[in-house]
Design a protein around this nucleic acid. Structure first.
Length: 1075
RNA sequence: GGGCCCGUAGCUUAGCUAGGUGGAGCGCACGGCUGAUAACCGUGAGGCCAUGAGUUCGAAUCUCAUCGGGCCCA
């Protein structure tokens, strides 16, 4: 049984069906452990999903986290958003498909396994055996998946954890294969040489997304290329990669720029002719330490096109001697460095494009491990980084190195092993995404983005730059690219499914689809030759790109795909704009020609308290487990959901977390408050219907019910727009402001009434309904606390109620309960009460002491309506015996008037007599002056008997508040609190002081609320004794005293005796429990 | 260097779409309440609304630039 039983109370009768008392403190850990056990024991997740079968379909695709073995705050936030939305959709009657997903292939795991095995290069893997290596990777990925599943579950996240999609499964691999086959059939698959980011350590192409930019020191070199047909004339280029000079094929200049041919003079008076962009001449010559120069001629870049030059190292790289080197035009050239760009089509994306456009040879004499091949002549076998120095020396020797220095610049590194990447033209496989750009832009307009700009601005910008997607990797742990190539006729075939592979190759039906096993499968070619698989595996981004149909086990089974695809909802962080949002769209355009999702919520990142990103190297990472340990999962959930808009970054802040936790504790206290009384009274919501108490509802009851409806509507609106923060804030404000700070305060006395009266039952019923509805509202966000409340409030009284709150329907706004004008009136009443506390504070009268009346001077009719409609609420909360109002805009007629002469107005008129006039005004009664000046002016008598006429301006009036009256403004007027003491008020005041102290002592003795006591009170001050004696019976009743003796010489013995000082009056009080 | 987003009290934030006196919570100071009590409530202090310019009678809000932070790209 879920509810936590209060310790040390005698009211709980085990086994009976009733609402139970709960613990004093909100103990998240205890609740969450218990609720997890309960969900498991009752198979709650399954029954909830089963329950909604046949309802409106809601297909959610989980963006698969990479199986690193541990979740971090960002992934926790991600799953919390997902869980909250899915729970909300489920309660709103949706049939939900929600397989959790895992991204399990790729370089990160390979690198980790390599590390564990002490490997340094691909050779080590080959020696160890690819089969063994793959097994290790698989083991590793599966184990980490299990670890992470547990971590997600502690957050209370409900996804289909038992049947997740895993990228390493056959059903998943088939989805990737099938997609590639579609690409081939639609002529969107391409192979050929392309320049790719290449990691020379991992010996594989890596995606743009996998390149990390960091500062790096490199040589900054200015190099001269000699023109073939002009003596002593050079074009000057600049590069940070001298090692690419052996691969130089061309020089690019901008066709529109102006270039100068200059005669440059050295210190030794020798001269040479150089070609440089005109605006950069000065700068380049300074760097080259020339003494002087003279411009010989200028020309456009267009004019330079076709100029032939000699490769600087043609004598060392034999192949270069056979190639003609020319200057060509390219629009991307910028006016930096020399304005002439070294082109090595084998080592740069732009270079490659220039090469293709100008039909240049794609020369790439560098191997996969970053060493030159035999094509590089002298440099053969040398590592390219080591070659920088050698190349520069060779250039220097030939007089072609104009200048060299070092610069620090941003340079790409492999995200896994941090090796500096190089660009290599290699044989790769591509999806021709560039061709689909326009269609993609059309498709994303149909997607509903939250926030709107995530799609219309951010994603759109990204797609506009879409290039062909290199999907091949030269590694082991990945989905093998299903392309088989004939070794005799070079024809290709793409395999779409396992079945097709077995059929065409006759392979073992139980074949493992990973490397190295599929590599051994051959397919007979039509030409009679044998087809072998190309060795590459897929880029892991291609794995997750097919998730929306792989989740549905398509193409293995088509039925679910037809029913569910495309996804109704996905949500990921803003880094996924270029990642999963994009890769999925690309793959889906290839496969189906449309977007794979309908609604996308882009969420933010979790940053540390100072707004820096959390990273292991900075050491500012906060683990979700640490937060859960301190505050529990529900507090973490409600913090990340309420702290900021989903798409904004979240600055993690422990103080805020503590505040959210406090809010949850208040909710707990609110919920706990009436339970002992309900339990004591055997309150059974099954028997006390709303209808039966409707006639007894007070204004505040109707008000809280109306507010409840309003909050439901607010949460609905917020959730429909996926504004989870607004939903949470509405709920929290309701709990804090309306329930805790107001309603509970108002109804407290009603819950203490002992008899079974309808007024009390009305409160019980209202509280009960509000609690149950609140529990349902928080269910998507704080599923554990909601469950705990539900089990106690609902399941304990109704065995037939749904087993878990998550099976319940979402609350529906009951329009009949909505009363906007009552809500408005209550708002005014609250501000009157606040203003009255303020006024009391000014006049020094505690709330415990009643006041004879408060007077409200309103500025509008609404205030009058509120006072009239909620008179007893106001009297009660302000502890006033009466409440009066003035007319709108009229001030209280008991206010005094104070007057003072205004010398600024008197002086100019009366000159030398001004002093006498001022004295006369000062001596007059303020009220008479005010009355006399109503017409604008009046005649007054001076001390010497003369009469003068004064004007209104000559007197300053101010209102004065009578003694013992405090006043304070509120936005609907002014409140005056009349705190004059009377015998009766003093009696009640002192009596309540006594009561408060006895209650305190009861608490100290840890008495139950229904225990009776005997009390003895000794008061030596006779006047106060008399005052208190007037209220003897009232005191006895309030403190549950069967015997109460109050007097001058009372013997104060008992279980607990204490001396008190009550407003300066010493009293001794003793109480004992009455057995 | 480019795109998008963010920058409001010591801290976390509302307000910005549709310009007109900037609201909260935490913390702090003071006070109240005392059958929610290791809880709760009130009052107060605390804001060149990142900076600068512009549009406007009027700018936290619109425009531009700069600075700082985040994501992405080069």
């Amino acid at each position: 049984m879920i509810p936590i039983h209060s310790q040390g109370t005698g009211h709980i009768q085990e086994g009976t069906i009733m609402i139970k008392e709960v613990t004093d403190q909100y103990n998240a850990k205890e609740i969450e452990t218990k609720v997890h056990g309960f969900w498991e024991a009752n198979n709650a997740y399954r029954s909830v999903r089963e329950h909604r079968k046949g309802a409106k379909k809601f297909y959610f695709v989980d963006g698969p986290p990479y199986t690193t073995g541990h979740i971090h705050l960002g992934t926790a936030w991600n799953k919390i958003i997902k869980d909250s939305i899915l729970r909300y959709m489920s309660m709103n009657d949706h049939d939900i498909l929600d397989r959790a997903g895992w991204d399990m292939h790729g370089l990160p795991i390979e690198v980790k396994v390599e590390g564990a095995l002490g490997f340094e290069s691909k050779k080590d893997i080959e020696t160890y055996g690819v089969g063994n290596f793959i097994e290790k990777c698989k083991e590793f990925a599966l184990r980490q998946k299990d670890d992470m599943t547990e971590q997600f579950q502690t957050l209370g996240v409900w996804l289909d954890w038992e049947d997740p999609y895993m990228t390493l499964k056959d059903e998943y691999i088939e989805a990737a294969w099938w997609t590639l086959k579609q690409a081939q059939e639609k002529n969107l698959l391409d192979t050929g040489k392309r320049v790719v980011n290449w990691c020379p350590r991992c010996e594989t192409a890596i995606a743009d997304a996998e390149v990390e930019y960091e500062d790096r020191e490199d040589p900054s070199t200015y190099i001269k290329f000699k023109l073939k047909d002009e003596e002593n004339t050079f074009v000057v280029i600049w590069t940070t990669t001298p090692w690419t000079i052996p691969s130089n094929i061309a020089v690019a200049v901008h066709p529109e720029f102006e270039y100068s041919k200059v005669k440059a003079v050295k210190d030794d008076d020798s001269t040479e002719t150089l070609i440089i962009a005109s605006e950069l001449v000065e700068n380049v010559l300074r760097i080259g330490r020339y003494a002087n120069y003279e411009v010989l001629s200028t020309m456009s870049g267009k004019d330079l096109e076709g100029t032939v030059y000699e490769h600087p190292l043609a004598d060392l790289v034999p192949l270069q001697a056979e190639i003609e080197h020319r200057i060509c035009n390219a629009d991307y050239v910028t006016a930096d460095s020399t304005g002439c760009v070294h082109i090595a089509p084998g080592h740069g994306v732009d270079d490659f494009e220039v090469g293709v456009k100008n039909e240049l040879p794609i020369f790439c004499p560098v191997g996969p491990n970053g060493s030159y091949t035999s094509e590089a002549g002298k440099y053969c076998g040398m590592n390219i980084r080591d070659a920088n120095r050698v190349v520069m020396d060779d250039l220097l020797e030939r007089g072609l190195l104009m200048a060299e220095r070092m610069i620090s610049h941003r340079y790409g590194h492999c995200w896994r092993c941090k090796t500096a990447i190089i660009y290599l033209a290699t044989e790769q496989w591509f999806l021709k995404i560039g061709e689909l750009k326009e269609d993609m832009l059309e498709e994303i307009k149909k997607v509903n983005w939250t926030p709107e700009w995530a799609g219309s601005a951010r994603f759109k910008d990204w797609i506009e730059g879409a290039r062909d997607w290199c999907i091949s990797r030269q590694r082991y742990w990945g989905i093998p690219i299903p392309v088989w190539k004939c070794s005799s006729c070079n024809s290709l075939t793409v395999i779409g499914t396992r079945e097709e592979l077995i059929e065409r190759s006759g392979a073992d039906p139980d074949i493992e689809l990973h490397r190295p096993y599929v590599d051994k499968v051959t397919i007979p070619c039509e030409c009679g030759g044998t087809m072998k698989r190309v060795e590459d595996v897929f880029d892991v981004w291609f794995d997750s790109a097919v998730a929306s149909w792989a989740t549905l086990r398509f193409p293995h089974s088509k039925e679910k795909f037809d029913e569910w695809w495309p996804a109704d909802f996905i949500t990921e962080g803003h880094d996924q704009t270029r990642g999963w949002f994009y890769s999925q769209l690309g793959a889906s355009m290839v496969a189906f020609g449309k977007a794979p999702y309908k609604n996308v919520l882009m969420h933010g990142f979790t940053l540390d308290g100072s707004g820096k990103k959390m990273s292991k190297s900075i050491g500012n990472v906060i683990q979700p487990a640490e937060v859960i340990d301190k505050f529990g999962a529900d507090t973490l959930r409600s913090y990340v959901l309420s702290a900021s808009a989903p798409w904004e970054d979240l600055k993690f802040n422990w103080d805020e977390l503590a505040t959210v936790h406090r809010t949850n504790n208040i909710l707990w206290n609110v919920y706990r408050f009436p339970l002992p009384y309900m339990a004591l009274d055997d309150f059974d919501p099954q028997k006390v219907s709303y209808e039966s108490v409707e006639a007894y509802l007070r204004s505040e009851d109707k008000w809280i019910l109306s507010r409840m409806q309003t909050v439901i509507a607010e949460v609905n609106t917020a959730m429909d727009a996926r504004l989870l923060h607004k939903a949470m804030r509405s709920i929290n404000e309701f709990v804090l402001e309306d329930l805790s700070r107001w309603y509970i305060q108002l109804i407290r006395p009603r819950t203490w009434v002992e008899a079974d009266n309808p007024d009390k039952l009305a409160v019980y019923r209202v509280l009960y309904d509000v609690f149950v509805t609140t529990a349902k509202l928080i269910a998507p966000f704080m599923p554990h606390l909601a469950e705990e409340m539900y089990q106690n409030l609902v399941r304990n009284v109704d065995e037939n109620a749904p087993v878990t709150i998550h099976l319940c329907d979402w609350p529906v706004v009951n329009e009949a309960l909505v009363d906007a004008s009552l809500e408005a009136q209550m708002k005014v009443a609250r501000s009157i009460v606040e203003a009255s506390s303020n006024a009391r504070q000014k006049v020094g009268r505690k709330l415990r002491w009643p006041v004879s009346r408060i007077v409200v001077s309103p500025t509008d009719e609404n205030t009058i309506a509120a006072v009239e409609g909620l008179r007893y609420v106001l009297m009660d909360q302000t502890n006033a015996k009466d409440i009066e109002t003035t007319k709108v805009g009229e001030s209280w007629n008991e206010l005094g008037v104070k007057s003072a002469p205004n010398p600024g107005a008197i002086g100019p008129v009366f000159k030398g007599d001004a002093g006498k006039i001022s004295a006369a005004i000062g001596a007059m009664d303020a009220y008479d002056l005010k009355k006399g000046l109503v017409g604008g002016e009046m005649e007054i008598s001076l001390a010497d008997g003369t009469n003068v006429t004064i004007t209104e301006k000559m007197v300053n009036f101010s209102e004065t508040v009578p003694e013992n009256v405090g006043s304070a403004e509120f936005n609907g007027g002014v409140v005056f609190v009349d705190a004059k003491l009377t015998h009766e008020i003093e009696s009640e005041g002192y009596s309540r002081e006594v009561i408060r102290r006895i209650q305190d002592m009861r608490k100290e003795l840890d008495l139950d609320v229904d225990d009776s006591i005997r009390g003895h009170i000794q008061i030596s001050d006779e006047r106060v004794l008399d005052l208190v004696l007037d209220f003897e019976n009232y005191i006895a009743k309030e403190v549950r005293a069967n015997v109460l003796v109050i007097g001058l010489d009372v013997e104060t013995t008992g279980e607990l005796a204490k001396e008190w000082n009550v407003e300066g009056i010493p009293m001794t009080i003793a109480i004992s429990k009455e057995e």
